[in-house]
């Protein structure tokens, strides 16, 4: 294990759109402090950052890639057939693959970033979570194409269609757990750094879209807290939550705010450093059994 002691350290990056770039700030701080990560888990947009970190790319490269990966034009191509299926479901055949936007732009970007990379080729073991659309179960993707896994994990309901891997139709990982700490637990991690993001509440509800977003935020945030609470209590060692606080509003595609987001991530990671140094630096026997 590459950590300061023999504890297995996992980084879990939860759902949070472009805010997940805060993980790069954490990566900066950990690199400076010599804290190595033994395992990375990602969910939804967090899966992209998890994969970039697991691939061993340095922060500057990842930052640059992010600006190109996650831009507004990812959702620019409307799927007109999908609209017809909504309006005339019997005539055009509405089914479980519904999505309002075509995924060609996002697939192109993901292939530019990750090419044919597989989980097996990652420098740090990587796991990505999605959700089985048929029954809501969390699906842990740990082998095969990284691009396919990320595409499945970011299948934002209504926007991108569910994505088929094997015989399962998968939707966004946040639907089963916005911060999948359990994957790191199952993989034997001792110290789990869990970077999560609460969904913003809508300040003004003046459209059906905002109404739906608010409902989604309520459910997602409650799911985040209930799942985290369970994992926090049941883990044998430490789960260290890092929930960055953003003073500025960060929207879905605010990639121009990435430097700010990284800075917030750095600050949030630095707040945990005094304890992490003590925990990983020496006498952590007590912590493991606590």
């Amino acid at each position: 294990m590459g950590s300061l002691n023999d504890k297995k350290v996992a980084l879990v990056i939860g759902a949070g759109s472009v805010k997940c770039a805060a993980a790069l700030g954490l990566q900066n701080v950990f690199k400076r402090e010599g804290i190595e990560i033994d395992l990375v888990v990602g969910c939804s947009a967090g899966s992209m950052y998890a994969a970039l970190i697991a691939a061993g790319y340095d922060v500057d490269r990842v930052t640059d890639m992010t600006k190109r990966l996650w831009t507004r034009d990812l959702t620019s191509q409307r799927d007109r057939m999908a609209l017809l299926r909504v309006a005339f479901p019997r005539l055009f055949g509405f089914d479980a693959t519904f999505g309002m936007r075509k995924d060609a732009p996002v697939m192109r970007r993901l292939r530019e970033a990750f090419g044919d990379l597989t989980f097996e080729g990652m420098k740090i073991p990587l796991h990505i979570t999605a959700t089985d659309f048929a029954n809501g179960e969390q699906v842990i993707l740990s082998s095969g194409s990284v691009v396919d896994a990320i595409r499945a994990s970011i299948s934002i309901p209504y926007i991108f269609s569910p994505y088929k891997i094997g015989d399962r139709l998968l939707i966004d990982g946040f639907m089963s757990d916005p911060l999948p700490v359990n994957v790191a637990m199952r993989e034997g991690a001792d110290v789990i750094i869990a970077m999560g993001f609460e969904s913003p509440n809508q300040t003004k509800i003046n459209s059906v879209g905002r109404f739906s977003f608010q409902l989604s935020s309520i459910m997602t945030n409650n799911l985040l807290k209930s799942r985290f609470a369970f994992h926090n209590i049941t883990h044998h060692s430490e789960v260290i939550p890092i929930v960055p606080r953003f003073d500025q509003r960060v929207r879905l595609f605010d990639t121009d705010k990435i430097p700010y987001i990284i800075e917030v991530g750095e600050r949030a990671a630095e707040e945990q450093l005094p304890y992490l140094r003590r925990l990983l630096g020496g006498d952590a026997t007590e912590a493991a059994g606590a």
Binding site: N232, I233, H235, V239, I240, Y275, A290
Partner: peptide, 12 residues
């Protein structure tokens, strides 16, 4: 000034 999961389990 700080609380972690292992510390919280003690409170529980």
């Amino acid at each position: 000034d700080y609380a972690s999961s292992a510390g919280l389990r003690t409170l529980l």
